[in-house]
Design a protein around this nucleic acid. Structure first.
Lengths: 370, 370
DNA sequence: TACGTATTGGAAACCGGTGTCATTGACAAT
DNA sequence: ATTGTCAATGACACCGGTTTCCAATACGTA
C-alpha cells in the first residue's frame, strides 16, 4: 500500500529531475553551496536514512540499492557535512595536539606521526601550543577544549608530565594520550619510551671508549625526561664503578644556549671531562659550540653524545652520536590509541605503549687523548 | 488561538524548573554531557532565541535580561556547541595550513603566527602537510577541503606558488591566503615579501667587503622564491658591474645535503668564489659544512650569506649572516586576511600584503684574503 | 480613547546529518 | 491457510544552535 503510494512519488521525483536539479542548482548558485543528503535521497528515490546507511557502510542494505545511490553520490559530488555528522553523533572528528616543546623538528615529527595515524580517516589534526610559564595555562587549555570539543588530544612532553592536565581532559570528557619518557599513566593513556635504559647504553658506549671523566648536561629540574636520563647516566657510571662528583652534573633547560653555558661550567673544571652526555641534541649542539669556542676539537678533545636524533644531529659538524627517540612511531601509536576503536573498529591489535630508543653512532665520540 | 494553546505550555515548562534541572542533571550524568542552550533557556525562563542573542551580543535585548541569562550561563558553565553553530551558520571555525615546506622551524613559525591571529577568536588551526611529488596531491587536497569544509586556508611556499591550488580553493568556496616571495595574486589572497630587493642588498653587502668572485646556490628550478632570489643576486652584480659566468650559479633543492653538493661544485672552480650566497639557511649550512670539510675556514676563506633566518642560522658556527624573512608577521597577516571581517568586524584596517626582509649581520662574512 | 510604532520575547522552521522504531513483503515453518 | 522470521527500507524525532516571522507590551500621539 505504502509502497504503491510511494512508487509513483519516486517516479515523480525522478521525472522532475529538472526540479531536483534546479534545487541543486539553487544550492550551487550561492558559492560554496554543496549538495546535501536530501539531494541524494531525492535523486535516488530513497529516504535520507538509506543514504545515511550507504555513507556509513551499513551491512543491512541491498547491494543494488547501494550501487544506485553511490552512482548518484558520485554524479552529484556529494560529500557529507562533517559538522552535521558531528552534531548528530555527538562527537567531532578533531584530534588536538597540545605541546610546549621548543624543538621544532620534534614537534613536526609528532605532527607527522599523528597524521599518519589519521590517514584515510575522517579525522583532522588541530594544534595547540601552550605556554608552560603562563599562570593561566590550564585555564587556557580548558577554554580550548570546551570550545572546540575535541574528540581527543595527544599531549607532548614536557607538558605531558602534568597530571592536572590529564585530569582536566578526563573531567571534560576528552580522550587523551600522553607521550613521555616513562610510564606516567596507564597504557590506554600513555606512550612511553625507555629513556633510562637507552642512556645507560649510550654512556656505556663512552666508557667502552675509555672515558672515565664524563660530564652530563641534564635537562631542567622537574622534567621527568631529565630525571630518567640522569638516572640512566648514573646507572652506567655505577655499573662501570666510576665515581660521579656533583660538579660533573650541570643543568640546562633543553636549549642551545643553555647547552653552551653548561658546557662552559663543565670545561672549566680541573680536570675537565673528556666526554659529555647532553640530555637532548640542542644542548649537545651547544656543547659542541662551546668546545669549539675554546679551541677544543670534537671528538678528539671532547666526545659528545646527545639525545633525540632530531635533524640537527645528522647535520651538525661533526655528525652527532645520539640516542634515537622513536618519536614518529610513538606519535602514531598515541593517535591510534585515541581513534583506533572508532576509525578502525575491525583492527583488534592493541597499540604498543612502550618503545625502545637506540643509540645512533656517528662521529662525535672517540677515545680520549692520553 | 495557537498562542493561547501554547502560552500555558510555556508556563508549564517554566514552572517545572525542577524538571528542567533534572533533565540538565540527566545530561550531566553521562560523562561529557554538557549543558545546552535549552538548559540555559529553561533555567532563565526565556526562549532559546533570547539566549542566542546573549551569545551573539545582539543589541536588541534588555540589559536586565542579559545579566540574568549571563548569570545562568556562568552557573551552568555553558559553552555553545561549535558543531551546532557551524551547522546553523553554514560555516565552521577552522583555518587550515597547507604546506610542503621541509623546514621545521619555518613551519612552526608560521603556525605560531597564524595562532597569534586566531587568538581570542573561535577559530582553531588544522594542519595539512602535503607531498608535492605525489601525483594525487591536488586530489588529496580537494578531498581534504571537501571533507573538512574549512573556513579558509593559509598556503605556505613552495606549494603556495601553485595556481591550480588557488583555483581549487575558489572552486570549493574556501577562502585562501598565499604566502610567498612575490605577488602571485591580488592583495586579498596574498602576503608577499620583497625577496629580490633583500637579496640585492645582501649581495651588495658582500661586494662592499671587497668580494668580486661570488657564487650562488640557487633554490630548485620552478620555485618562485628561487627565481626572485636569483634575480636579486643578478641585480646586485650588475649594479657592481661584475660579470657573472654560468659556472658560478649552482642549483640546490633547499636541503642541507644539496647545499653541500652545490658548494663542492662551486669550490672546485678555478679560481673558486670567495663568497657564496645561498638561497636558504639550510643550504648555507651545507655550504659551511662543505667548506670545513675542505679545510677552508669561514669567513676567512669563504664568506657566506643565507636566507630566512631560521634558528639554525643563529646556532651554527659561525653564526650565519642571513636575510630575515618576517615569516611570523606574514603568517599572522595571512590569517587575519582570512578571518578578519568575521572575527574582528569592528577593525577597519586592511592587513598589509607586502613585508620587507632585512639583512641580519652575524659572523659569516669577512673581507676576502689577498 | 484609539492608534501607530518601537522594543522585546517566543514559536516554529531550518541547517544536514543519525537513531529508534515501524512497516513491508518474501519466505519458511506450523 | 496462518503465523513467525528476517532483510530492506522508511517515517519521524532529535542533535544544538540560528533565523524568520509574528505577538505582546510599552509608549507617544492624534
Amino acid at each position: 500500500m505504502e509502497h504503491w503510494h510511494r512508487s509513483p512519488l519516486a517516479l515523480f521525483v525522478s521525472e522532475e529531475g529538472g526540479l531536483a536539479k534546479r534545487s541543486s542548482n539553487a544550492n550551487g548558485d550561492r558559492p560554496g553551496g554543496k549538495p546535501t543528503i536530501n539531494d541524494v535521497a531525492r535523486l535516488s528515490g530513497v529516504s535520507k536514512k538509506t543514504v545515511s546507511r550507504v555513507i556509513n557502510n551499513s551491512p543491512l542494505l541491498n547491494d543494488e540499492t547501494r550501487e544506485r545511490i553511490l552512482k548518484v553520490i558520485a554524479e552529484l559530488g556529494y560529500v557529507p557535512n562533517p559538522q552535521a555528522r558531528a552534531l548528530a553523533l555527538r562527537r567531532n572528528f578533531l584530534i588536538g595536539l597540545i605541546h610546549d616543546n621548543p624543538n621544532a623538528q620534534m614537534v613536526l615529527n609528532v605532527q607527522h606521526g599523528i597524521l599518519e595515524a589519521l590517514q584515510d580517516t575522517d579525522f583532522a589534526l588541530v594544534i595547540r601550543p601552550v605556554d608552560r610559564t603562563s599562570p593561566h595555562m590550564l585555564d587556557d587549555i580548558r577554554n580550548f577544549l570546551e570550545r572546540q570539543r575535541l574528540f581527543g588530544v595527544v599531549i607532548l612532553p614536557p607538558i605531558s608530565e602534568n597530571d592536572q592536565l590529564a585530569r582536566l581532559c578526563d573531567e571534560l570528557g576528552c580522550r587523551y594520550a600522553r607521550m613521555g619518557s616513562a610510564e606516567l599513566d596507564d597504557p590506554d593513556h600513555m606512550v612511553a619510551s625507555n629513556d633510562r635504559q637507552a642512556v645507560r647504553e649510550a654512556v656505556a658506549h663512552l666508557v667502552e671508549h675509555g672515558h672515565r671523566t664524563i660530564g652530563i648536561v641534564q635537562g631542567p629540574h622537574g622534567f621527568r625526561s631529565a630525571t630518567e636520563r640522569r638516572l640512566g647516566f648514573e646507572d652506567a657510571l655505577k655499573t662501570a664503578k666510576i665515581k660521579l662528583p656533583r660538579s660533573l652534573m650541570a643543568e640546562g633547560n633543553y636549549t642551545f644556549e643553555s647547552g653552551i653555558a653548561a658546557a662552559n661550567r663543565l670545561l672549566d673544571l680541573a680536570p675537565p671531562p673528556t666526554a659529555i652526555f647532553a640530555s637532548n641534541d640542542e644542548m649537545a649542539a651547544g656543547v659542541v659550540h662551546a668546545a669549539r669556542q675554546r679551541g677544543l676539537s670534537v671528538p678528539e678533545d671532547l666526545s659528545i653524545i646527545g639525545f633525540d636524533d632530531t635533524s640537527i644531529a645528522a647535520h651538525m659538524w661533526p655528525p652527532l652520536t645520539t640516542v634515537r627517540w622513536p618519536i614518529i612511531s610513538m606519535a602514531r601509536s598515541a593517535a591510534l590509541k585515541l581513534v583506533g576503536d572508532v576509525a578502525h573498529p575491525d583492527r583488534e591489535v592493541d597499540e604498543p605503549s612502550m618503545f625502545l630508543s637506540t643509540l645512533v653512532r656517528r662521529s662525535s665520540v672517540a677515545a680520549p687523548r692520553q
